[in-house]
Simulated assay, not measured.
Amino acid sequence: MPDEVSDDVIAEMFGIAQRTASWCNTQPWQVYLTKGEATGRFAASLTDHAKTHQPTPDLETPAEYRGVYKERRRGAGYALYASLGIAREDREAREAQGLRNFEFFGAPHVAVITTDQDQGVYGAVDCGGYVANLINAATSLGVATIPQAAIAMHSDHVREFFRIPQDRLIVCAVSFGYADTEHPVNRFRTTRADVEDTVVIVDH
């Protein structure tokens, strides 16, 4: 069983994240956080569900990845599987690795991030800022994180498990704990575009 993060460190992580700026200071995020046996129960329940059910996300997923976005996505996927020694044509191994999302990759905690449905896209954007700050806070405290959209692909089951009200939309989850530094996946890094490719400076 992986080491859990102490209550004091968890409180500090989420306390820092709570300072996230939001539209009109609405702070639309609400988090459902597991520890102890609850993480294992949620993982087992969600994995069984994902094996036999189609995705039912609350938020609309990307319609298509084109051009550079498709290239970046595929490049990240290929590099990840290569770090794990999984060949492109090994469909069984790729599917097994995909299911590890629902086991939170062995992390002892998972935080499910939800937003208020009436705040629409801006509530989800605010939650994105919250997630980024949570990840940075965790890193500063020596805690490793995995932001996961996969959990939100089965929003109906997540809602049922945690008894989340219908007016809360599942945005994503963040699994966290202490990294296994010997695992090859933790030496994998995604690339980043040059700033010149993403920032347009207008000076006249």
Rank of each mutant, 00 (worst) to 15 (best):
T115I: 11
Y122E: 15
G123I: 06
S83R: 05
L84Y: 09
P108C: 05
V131M: 12
G120T: 01
A132K: 14
L134Q: 11
N136F: 13
D118R: 12
Q97S: 14
L99F: 15
A137R: 00
R159C: 00
G120N: 03
T114E: 12
A107L: 03
D118M: 14
D116K: 09
A124Q: 07
G106C: 11
N133E: 11
F162Q: 06
E160L: 10
F161I: 02
R94H: 07
A138H: 01
A87G: 09
S140E: 01
N136P: 01
S155T: 00
A132S: 15
Y122A: 13
A152M: 07
G85H: 09
G106D: 10
G128R: 00
I86E: 04
V143G: 00
I86W: 07
R94M: 13
G106S: 09
H154D: 05
H157R: 12
C127F: 08
V158G: 06
G123V: 12
A124Y: 03
R88A: 13
L134K: 07
N133L: 12
P147W: 12
E95I: 15
T145N: 10
A93Q: 14
V121H: 07
A96W: 03
T114I: 08
L134M: 15
P108F: 11
E160W: 13
R88G: 03
T114F: 11
R100G: 05
G98L: 08
R159P: 02
I113P: 10
F162N: 04
A93R: 13
R91T: 13
P108G: 04
M153H: 05
G106F: 08
C127G: 03
E160F: 09
A111T: 05
V158D: 09
A152V: 02
H157C: 08
G106K: 02
Q148G: 10
S83V: 10
G129H: 06
P108K: 06
A96K: 11
G98V: 12
N133W: 02
R88M: 06
E160G: 13
N133G: 04
A138F: 02
I151L: 06
R94A: 10
G123A: 08
R159V: 00
L84E: 11
A111Y: 04
I151H: 09
T139Q: 12
V158I: 08
Q119G: 09
G98N: 12
S155A: 14
V158A: 10
E95G: 13
V112D: 05
H109P: 01
A137M: 02
F104S: 02
S83A: 15
I86D: 05
A111N: 05
T139P: 00
R159N: 00
G106W: 06
